[in-house]
């Protein structure tokens, strides 16, 4: 398998990842992504028919606990790390069109 990576592909995926790629960098980044995807393409040589995927190396099961009320972090301390806050809330631009 040899996947061709175009500038379009890189722009499309960068947009999905909410990243902006400046015009001056798209060429170099596309070449680098092509090299890395070529490395990833090597895996198609491996016969994996009938092999279960591993999500976790050691069997991990859901861990449950009682759903009891515990103290939360102080609001003021949490908001202290926010780039902008107002009246005890995070301050964000309009999310929906009016």
């Amino acid at each position: 398998m040899k996947t061709v990576i175009t500038e379009e592909d890189v722009r499309y995926v960068a947009n999905l990842a909410k990243l902006h790629v400046p015009d001056g960098q798209i060429n170099a980044l596309t070449k680098q992504m092509a090299d890395i995807v070529a490395l990833a393409d090597k895996l198609s040589d491996v016969d994996t028919s009938g092999i279960e995927p591993t999500n976790h190396v050691i069997p991990v099961n859901n861990v449950f606990r009682e759903d009891e009320v515990r103290p939360s972090y102080p609001r003021d301390e949490m908001l202290a790390n926010a780039p902008m806050s107002s009246a005890g809330c995070y301050f964000v631009p309009y999310t929906f069109d009016e």
């Binding site: 960068a14 999905l16 990842a17 995927p53």
Partner: peptide
């Protein structure tokens, strides 16, 4: 960007699932 690519629709099985199988 690479991570988003291998998880994106149409490539998930070829890359991400494949890598998890190779991981096994």
């Amino acid at each position: 960007i690479l991570g988003t690519y291998v998880l994106s629709s149409g490539y998930y099985d070829a890359y991400y699932k494949k890598a998890q199988q190779v991981r096994t």
